[in-house]
Every structure is written in C-alpha cells, then in structure tokens.
C-alpha cells in the first residue's frame, strides 16, 4: 500500500509540474510550485518508509520550512519589485500591532 501511495504522490508531482510549466500567469506557477513542494515532502517521507530508513526525515522537515520562504520571496518580489520593503499590516489592524 505504501508503494501505491508513493506512486500516487509521484503522479501528482508530474501533474503539478505540467501546470508549473504551462502557467499561464505567474500566480498559477507559484501555486503549482508551492504544492509541488508539499508533495515532495510527502514523497521524502514515503521514500524513507519504503526503503526502510525513516531516520532521514530532517530533509522533509527542512523542505517544509524552506519552500515557504521561496514562495513568499517570489510573491513579494513580483508585487513590490523590491526586497527591502516591509510588508505592513493594514491600517485597520495596525493599532493592534506592537
């Protein structure tokens, strides 16, 4: 059953890859790449169990963190054309901050 699940995740990755390449807009690509990262984490988990070496989940844990940073970087850069701008909360909620 784990093998079938592994293959299902790989199939899901292939489908998402097609969407990431086709686009059509940048946001479709971001969405597909982000989801692709999630599937990779699941695949890493499955591979660990299928090969009988589940001790190496650190890599999956790392991906769960790093994928998020990449997604945010692309979205921010595409909208603000800069890395230096702080992302502010809206004016209504700003009173609650700090």
């Amino acid at each position: 059953m784990l093998v079938a699940a592994t293959l299902a995740v790989i199939a899901a990755m292939a489908l998402l890859l097609a969407r990431a390449i086709m686009g059509p807009t940048l946001y479709d690509r971001v969405l597909a790449v982000n989801s692709f990262g999630t599937k990779t984490v699941l695949l890493l988990g499955f591979l660990g169990f299928v090969t009988g070496r589940p001790d190496f989940l650190d890599i999956a844990l790392l991906y769960a963190m790093i994928n998020f940073v990449g997604t945010i970087a692309i979205l921010k850069f595409f909208r603000y054309r800069s890395f230096g701008v702080p992302l502010v909360a809206s004016k209504n909620s700003a009173q609650g901050e700090e």
Partner: peptide
C-alpha cells in the same frame, strides 16, 4: 497507517488533477 497514507496520497493526486484541469487561478 498504510491505508491512511494511501488515502492521503490519493487525495493529493486528485488535487493535482484539479490544478491541471480547472479553468482559472
């Protein structure tokens, strides 16, 4: 455990089909 994992993987695959087939972002 295996059954749960397989169910989850099938959900993921179904979601990916949706990402490929649905009309807009």
């Amino acid at each position: 455990g295996s059954a749960l994992a397989l169910t989850g993987a099938v959900f993921s695959a179904a979601g990916s089909i949706g990402v490929l087939r649905f009309p807009d972002f």
